[in-house]
């Protein structure tokens, strides 16, 4: 882990192996990096809850965790360097409230997405094969971004990564379940989007009156069950 300064009030914990700066290197360690990100996210949220860490924002992402609103970044960086984060066995020891305090969120999905045949081609299987795989995968929210409540779900192996559409759709309906790279995601609201559509759900993903407002917050375990 490297800790990079970001401006005057933030730190970036970089968990990517150094060779990943070479994009030609194979993304073989994706799963380990994602596990390290999740372990550090949980560790840092826990430390903040205990009052051992002051940070306004703790933002996990693909290979990093950003701490923003840190009063004294050099002191905090030195402190973090003395901590370790071990990956929880199955994410059950997340110290922060995940959606509805439940370790697992089941999202009922109608698997009728327009791009299922394309995903089947990439995966060298048929459409029922894609649906079975998605239905049986244990996903976890690695991080949120793109829009409030949009969770990047990990759980698919690196060899099942799929490309984005060459030209994004003008409008992807809310509730669309989609794939891009090694991630699955669900569009909380209608928006333009280039992910491959595999299905849709009626579940509300982001509700400002709910606590927490996002159904899928980082660390949450997710199953995309067939409706």
């Amino acid at each position: 882990m490297r800790i990079r300064p970001v401006g005057t009030h933030a730190l970036l914990l970089d968990l990517a192996p150094p060779e990943d700066i070479d994009p030609a290197a194979p993304p073989s360690r994706d799963t380990e990096v994602a596990a390290a990100v999740e372990a550090w996210r949980a560790e840092l949220w826990h430390r903040r809850e205990l009052g051992e860490l002051v940070a306004v924002e703790i933002v996990p992402a693909a290979t990093t965790v950003l701490l923003d609103g840190v009063p004294d970044p050099p002191v905090t960086a030195a402190l973090i360097a003395t901590w370790t984060a071990s990956a929880p066995p199955d994410g059950t020891m997340t110290a922060v409230p995940t959606a509805a305090s439940a370790p697992l969120v089941e999202v009922p999905v109608s698997y009728d997405g327009a791009d299922l045949p394309q995903v089947a081609d990439h995966w060298r299987t048929d459409v029922p094969g894609v649906v079975r795989r998605l239905r049986d995968t244990e996903f976890q929210v690695a991080f949120c971004g793109f829009a409030p409540g949009f969770g990047y779900l990990t759980g698919l192996p690196a060899e099942l990564a799929v490309p984005r559409l060459p030209t994004p759709r003008q409008r992807v309906p809310a509730g669309s379940v989609a794939l891009a790279g090694r991630y699955a995601g669900i569009y909380p609201t209608a928006s333009p989007g280039g992910w491959l559509l595999v299905g849709r759900t009626e579940v509300t993903l982001f509700d400002v009156t709910a606590d927490p407002p996002a159904l899928l917050s980082p660390g949450t375990q997710v199953r995309l069950v067939e409706r």
Binding site: A10, A16, I21, P23, E57, A61, A62, T63, D68, G145
Partner: peptide, 15 residues
Amino acid sequence: AVAGELPSEGLVLGA
């Protein structure tokens, strides 16, 4: 100096 895509990461004000 480095081509390719940076994996998404957190942004701060003023980045």
